[in-house]
Nucleic acid binder design. Structure first.
Lengths: 201, 201
DNA sequence: GCACTCAGTAAACAGTGTTCACTACTATAC
DNA sequence: GTATAGTAGTGAACACTGTTTACTGAGTGC
């Protein structure tokens, strides 16, 4: 990451880029990805549609940038909820619940992150960060004997299982089961605890 | 369901409706939901764009119909894989794996079923069918003592947990982790078995 | 003070879903 | 067998979309 000190105009340009990005994000939050319109966005920030193409190559490029930003927000939201303790199970539980909560709080952003076109590698970096820190916790739990693995249920599989569980809960909740049960956070806790029970020593 | 015997022209109309629907489905399968174009679709079946509006109120209406059809396919695919036996655990495992496999085989259809706009109640019926039969298996397992419930982990929660697990696996696989591991079906089996272990007596 | 860079514009282009007046054919009623 | 009503399908228009391109005008470096 080599960033030489930027000139004022470079900083101004970076600022309006952020401005565009943030407004795009808010538009997606309010109306969904399909509700994002280049023309409406340009209008909102007092620009001409064509001007945006000086900052982003295309609409997809802009969406990718919003997606990456959302991934970062999700990751830091989770990181905030995980206070590093000696209890790996507690960290997994809190992190997982944070994941589910974030999805419930920002369904449109969550949907944006996990749809088919998101494999464009833009968000791949952030995804790897999430996966790595998850794996780290699991391996920490194994190392200190808090968790126990089996030959076909190793650290990687355990981590994957945790992610699949919270992702499944969050995804079902934000798509086809919207607000069907009001106790869904308690419910999620029970299910996640059950999964964790499956590999505590 | 009151359907009086249809006249020939009614049957003809129903036939072209099915024709439109099937071509729309194939177009979605090949190019995704966003790749579905009314004009391209009309072109493909030698109609004028406007003609389709005699069969579907709008593009969204058409998409809803495709979604409902896909849900039906998924449900019958799973039903085929579940031979009714006395072993509820086996039924859950086979059904869950069928779910995951279907998603892997038809990622675009799967994505269509589980995106934000799908709560339009069109697919609600099919969803309820799936949930009911899942719940039935769990209750069957409980009744014959094969499974055991706890006060905060009752039949409904167990069913929900199973669905969330397979959905999470399928969703992760078809979105951000496409083909990252080739042994993902075996992996899925291990994870699902772990979940089931959590409530067998 | 001059030349140059470049952010931003206006207008056009090709595409989209949707509507509507209209045509042509088909099924029914007399 | 002919007139009538209904309707499947057309073609052109409308209001939108994302994107490109020639151009303008203000700010920077020399």
């Amino acid at each position: 990451m080599v960033t030489k000190n930027p000139t004022p105009q470079e900083r101004r340009k970076e600022q309006t880029r952020r401005d565009i990005l943030e407004n795009a994000r808010q538009m997606i939050v309010r109306q969904g990805v399909d509700g994002l319109s280049i023309r409406a966005l340009a209008d909102q920030i007092d620009y001409t549609p064509g001007a945006l193409y000086k900052y982003f190559d295309s609409k997809d490029d802009l969406i990718d940038a919003v997606r990456a930003a959302s991934f970062e927000r999700l990751n830091s939201f989770i990181a905030m909820r995980i206070q590093p303790t000696n209890n790996a199970a507690e960290m997994l539980l809190n992190g997982g619940l944070a994941y589910i909560e974030y999805a419930a709080l920002h369904p449109q952003e969550y949907f944006l992150m996990f749809n088919m076109e998101s494999s464009k590698a833009t968000s791949g970096e952030q995804r790897d960060i999430a996966m790595r820190s998850l794996l780290q916790i699991v391996e920490f739990g194994l190392m200190q004997g808090e968790f126990v693995a089996q030959d076909d249920y190793d650290a990687a599989t355990i981590a994957y299982h945790c992610w699949a569980t919270v992702h499944g809960i969050a995804s079902l909740q934000t798509t086809i089961l919207l607000d069907e049960r009001d106790d869904f956070l308690l419910l999620s806790r029970v299910m996640l605890q059950k999964v964790i029970e499956g590999f505590v020593a």
